[in-house]
């Protein structure tokens, strides 16, 4: 498992593809978590199942937790769940890279 994170539009998908040709990619994991919540699922249970099912996956996601706490409860729940889910993905990943302006910095 590898994880590439960064703010919106920082080029994390491009860098992940460049560095891992032929890998199994999952882009936008923060949006996957939104979909899980929208259909009434448990984001952490989903994430654990995902980690078991795709141990070699390359995952990309946006960092979404650096704004003001949202007024709408479902937005609050999503940001929190996305952050927690990405902590689990990062814990299981052999490499975690943060992308700023298209440049990757290896965090793990």
């Amino acid at each position: 498992m590898k994880l590439y994170i960064g703010g919106a539009y920082q080029g994390q998908e491009e860098l992940a593809q460049q560095e891992n040709p032929g890998a199994e990619f999952f882009f936008g994991f923060h949006e996957t978590i939104r979909e899980v919540l929208a259909r009434g699922g448990d984001p952490l249970a989903y994430t654990e199942a995902f980690l078991r099912g795709h141990p070699e996956a390359v995952v990309t996601a946006n960092e979404v937790g650096c704004g003001l706490v949202p007024v709408r409860p479902e937005e609050r729940a999503w940001r929190e769940a996305a952050g927690r889910a990405l902590c689990r993905v990062a814990a299981k990943s052999g490499a975690v890279t943060r992308v700023v302006c298209g440049i990757g910095t290896r965090l793990k």
Binding site: G6, G7, A8, Y9, Q10, G11, H30, N62, E63, V64, G65, C66, G67, L68, P70, E75, W78, R79, A82, V100
Partner: peptide
């Protein structure tokens, strides 16, 4: 760096953010 607030913008703001990135 204005890209990690988790907000979903549309229209002109989204175009501005994409262009800045």
């Amino acid at each position: 760096d204005v890209f990690a607030d988790g907000e979903r913008y549309d229209g002109e703001t989204a175009r501005y953010l994409q262009a800045l990135a």
